[in-house]
């Protein structure tokens, strides 16, 4: 597998009449992580969606090699189904052969029979992280991944991030919360405000 890479040049993002940021460039190679910080409304989520290719940038372009996985506030799990069944759909789509590991890591094995709509905020987040893990993607795009997680789950996610980048993956984490990780770079979005 060729090493994954993520680069963006001179990105600008416009939402409605407002230019959120401009002249933003980033360059991430295998094993690197970037923490995007900034107050609400500075464009953290928009940046993630632009990098994911879901939103067209107002200017600039994004290049990447390697598969991308997205984790945002939207769960993409069927609310009326038991969690196990809802996750199984993505396991089939991602051809994941061993989902048990990630379920154990996120401690959601006991919740598999519970319909998704009855899960708490933190439990939903953990399920979404399990889906991300099962996807086996090279480039992780995480939008506020620590929201709603308890201390223990936060530490688990930090460990997962370290493991992911240690294995040659890339992580782009947009979060107003700080987290500990060796070698993580920080990008403060307000510095690119127009």
């Amino acid at each position: 597998m060729e090493p994954c890479r993520l680069s963006a040049k001179d990105l600008a993002c416009r939402r409605g009449e407002r230019l959120l940021f401009t002249g933003l460039s980033l360059e991430l190679g295998a094993g690197q992580a970037l923490h995007v910080t900034g107050p609400n409304g500075t464009g953290k989520s928009s940046l993630i969606r632009i990098v994911a290719g879901l939103l067209r940038p107002f200017a600039g372009h994004v290049e990447h090699s390697g598969s991308m996985g997205l984790l945002d506030e939207r769960l993409a799990l069927d609310e009326h189904l038991p969690l196990g069944k809802a996750l199984r759909f993505w396991e089939q789509v991602d051809s994941c052969s061993d989902p048990a590991m990630s379920l154990a890591t996120m401690q959601i094995e006991d919740l598999l029979e519970v319909p998704v709509r009855y899960l708490s905020t933190g439990q939903r987040k953990r399920a979404a992280i399990a889906r991300l893990l099962n996807g086996g993607r090279n480039i992780w795009l995480l939008d506020e991944p620590f929201n709603g997680l308890d201390t223990q789950a936060c530490e688990a996610l930090e460990a997962l991030l370290a493991l992911h980048c240690g294995g040659g993956g890339i992580a782009l984490v947009a979060s107003h919360q700080s987290f500990t990780m060796d070698g993580v770079k920080t990008l403060h979005l307000p510095e690119f405000e127009a």
Binding site: A52, G53, L54, L70, D72, R74, A76, V93, G135
Partner: peptide, 14 residues
Amino acid sequence: VENGFFDQWALRGI
């Protein structure tokens, strides 16, 4: 669309 299914599919090239 609201639950983000289509975003996840798009990222998987579906």
